[in-house]
Design a binder for these strands. Structure first.
Length: 255
DNA sequence: ATGACTCCCAGTGGGAGA
């Protein structure tokens, strides 16, 4: 079974590309970020017609997440219980015995901004939530747009990005703290091509020049780790007309 | 180079993203 994450940057715009991608890449489940749709406008009928059950949680203009799965998700939770948040960023559900957490981490804008303070508080709350979920569900995956480049090798120009948003020591410490819960970065379990990114700026011909960041991640629990067979970033959708600025990340699990 | 592009809501511009 494959699991995937994709920041689609507006599902209203990207729905045809999502359906095309799913037709070519059947998955057991996929989490989406930045749907940018209120719940009443979510295109569930089209997704269901493609053979996927879907749970969604959105808002106007920004954020918004969804969990698509072949068999449907059970015990779905929206956002982080106990963390008051007006932003729709997290959706969790159990799919085929795996606890799937799909998350759109805050961007943070700049290290000295209020949005960075919010990002840190959100990360603290997420970590507590994941810890509790892990205690109840040993087979767990945390995937989504983390808006954190964990290491310098995840950045096309680490000197220019040093200390910048996505690369600050505080954000990287938060990523390590998630690993400290007993999670493993599935992508780094395997030899990967150098300069592997999951996001490329729309500007500056960044994709053509392969100037990007690896900020979309799939973390797996200790119990799930032995089942991980492969993990890769699919750059093909970034070559579409009107692409998302993010590429899907896919993990393959043994049955 | 405080930019560049894309999306959204707005409303003939501006915020946000990363």
């Amino acid at each position: 079974m494959k699991l995937a994450t994709w920041n689609v940057n507006s599902l209203a715009v990207r729905l045809p590309q999502l359906l095309d991608w799913l037709a070519a890449n059947p998955v057991g489940a996929i989490v989406l970020q930045e749907t940018k749709l209120t719940d009443d406008k979510f295109p569930h009928a089209e997704i269901e017609a493609a053979g996927y059950a879907v749970s969604w949680f959105g808002q106007k203009t920004y954020n918004g997440v969804a969990l698509l799965s072949r068999g449907g998700a059970e015990a779905v939770v929206r956002n982080i219980p106990g963390f008051a948040d007006e932003q729709a960023r997290v959706i969790t559900g159990s799919v085929g015995g795996i606890r799937v957490i799909g998350a759109y981490f805050p961007n943070g804008q700049a290290p000295d901004s209020d949005k960075f303070t919010y990002k840190m508080a959100w990360l603290d709350a997420l970590r507590a939530f994941v810890q509790a979920e892990l205690a109840a569900h040993s087979h767990l995956v945390l995937m989504g747009d983390y808006n954190i480049a964990p290491e310098d090798r995840d950045v096309y120009d680490p000197v220019a990005w040093a200390g910048q948003i996505h690369c600050t020591p505080q954000e990287r410490a938060q990523f390590q703290a998630l690993l400290g819960l007993g999670l493993t970065d599935a992508f780094r379990m395997f030899e990967q091509p150098p300069k592997s990114w999951s996001w490329w700026d729309y500007r500056n011909l960044a994709f053509r020049k392969n100037q990007g960041l690896r900020i979309d991640h799939i973390l797996v629990s200790e119990a799930l780790k032995p089942r991980v067979r492969a993990c890769s970033i699919d750059k093909l959708p970034r070559k579409n007309e009107r692409p998302s600025d993010h590429a899907p990340v896919v993990v393959e699990l043994a049955d």
